[in-house]
Amino acid sequence: MNTVQYGRAFVFGDSVNTDALAPGIYMKHPIGTIASHCLESVDPTFATTVRPGDVVVAGKGFGIGSSREQAAEALKHLGVAAVLARSFGGIFYRNALNLGLPVLVCDSVDGIGAGDLVHVDAATGVIDNKTRGTTLSAAPLPAFLLAMIADGGLVPHLEKRFADRRAAARQS
């Protein structure tokens, strides 16, 4: 059986920054604590209502600010399946991909409302909005980044590379 999993859309505006995603005062704590305060200055109910498989949708400059990876890690910890935005903060964008969280640049985020049931295909950039019966598109990710996400992020990806290298060294 191969059913498509839909997640609810949580919709935000422009310039959602890393101090909102991972507030500085909780940074010394484990990711679970940081995640429980994720986005609370923008939407105090987000962290308690978001469920695994849900999708974050935003405007321009999602994740601008700090290099703190916990900004992306908090979303991943809460089970967010993908982030769609008109544009991203550069470091956040790389951090999210490195953690295996698909982040896609999408110009048509206006076609998604809060609570819409959506499915995001990171490989093709196709977004299926079940609630509205529409199909939207995002820029697909390049193959080498998809391979990294498929491995679960940069760490498992490199882990595999180092393991392969050790195996090759043993055989030679």
Partner: peptide, 12 residues
């Protein structure tokens, strides 16, 4: 600037 995981990749 990069985040911590990416930095770990660089350091390795």
């Amino acid at each position: 600037g990069v985040g911590a995981t990416e930095m770990a990749g660089v350091l390795a």
